[in-house]
Amino acid sequence: MTEDRKIKIIVAKPGLDGHDRGAKLLARIFAEAGMEVVYTGLRQTPEMIVETALQEDADVVGLSSLSGVHMYFFPRVVELLREKGLDDVLVVGGGIIPKEDIPELKKAGVAEIFGPGTPTAEIVAFIKNNVRTRD
């Protein structure tokens, strides 16, 4: 990755959950870390999130869920990204996610899950270290 290349990240709220404090906060933190952040707003279906990633040529998709629907939404987003050939897009998640769900989410292709109280610097560092190098 060249020094100049901006990381483009989609911050999305899948489903009907309206708790967007964390998502908005992170959008701001990511922008401060020099990333270009596409914020989608609420009520996104997995299909919408993946279409957005496709049109925006996003490097990263960040998903936030507090209503307990992560086991449905997160794997579905990964699956659809793969269907569209976007295998190299990094998918990360956050919100209220029981630890025991994490192994399964990782197996489904979610790169990392950040629970409540994770320092934002840790999230930024993870993304910077794991984002794809674009061909």
């Binding site: 959008a27 922008a31 914020y39 989608t40 707003g41 279409e51």
Partner: peptide
Amino acid sequence: SPFTGGAVLGDRVRMSRLTMDPGVFMRS
């Protein structure tokens, strides 16, 4: 941002219903 070089691109929020329309391509 002139300070960090980052940006928040929020225009899709209001155009959410266009996302799944194959006749529309949007780029922020």
